[in-house]
Design a protein around this nucleic acid. Sequence first.
DNA 1: CCACTGTTCAACCAGTTGGTTGACAACTGG
DNA 2: CCAGTTGTCAACCAACTGGTTGAACAGTGG
Lengths: 124, 124
Amino acid sequence: MADQLSRVFAALADPTRRDMVARLTEADHTVNDLAAPYDVSLQAVSKHLKVLEDAGLVSRTREAQRRPVHLEAEVFDLMTKWIERYRRQAEERFARLDAVLARMQDDDSTAPTATTQQQEGTAS
Amino acid sequence: MADQLSRVFAALADPTRRDMVARLTEADHTVNDLAAPYDVSLQAVSKHLKVLEDAGLVSRTREAQRRPVHLEAEVFDLMTKWIERYRRQAEERFARLDAVLARMQDDDSTAPTATTQQQEGTAS
DNA sequence: CCACTGTTCAACCAGTTGGTTGACAACTGG
DNA sequence: CCAGTTGTCAACCAACTGGTTGAACAGTGG
């Protein structure tokens, strides 16, 4: 099956599932309960829940005939970590780039072939 | 097409695309350049890039025959906002729940059959 | 100008997704 | 125990995905 991070992103790529997650932050819900607002069959909702469960975003227990669905919010951290890591990296890079540009402006005697990495030096 | 948030999540649900994004935080890259590490055709990579572009995660300009790919890191905020909003909401709810449980423990005169209506709170 | 490099478009294919309906399983509670 | 409520499983379908190959387009540079 794909790694968990992929499953989490994929699970949240569907608006209906995102809405379910949003509602589950307020309170646990039964399947019927969850299904009510959407114009799809109960089975479809059950499938959505399976996707969320496989991603580790929700868990289900039993309580009488009902299967209360509970949000496992810790999984959010998985995404947050990934996103923040690369966001930070991108920001640092932009900072570096700004510095380079500033330096170039500063003393424009710099050779244009100045060992900048890939595209970076493309100050056309 | 779907809304942008869905497209962004869907785009990042693929490990190859996540890796491309990761590499693009370091520097811009051409398509060939990007494709090098992966064992798929150039056309497949081109498709992945289209997905990332449709999600607003990257932009492409022209430079001679090359099409340098550039990361648009701001889009990360879209996800971060969504995630953080609901994470916070979930945390607040858990805090509330803890409070309720603490209170119940405090004066255990509470009827044990205390109508667990929805699942918990009723404190909406 | 024309060959070459870099990239995309088009058609196709297998596998997945999100939905459907119908049957059935699990559990309560009268 | 049996009827009723709640939810899942199975089979099916259309649409989408991620990959392929072959052809075409864009732009440079000899």
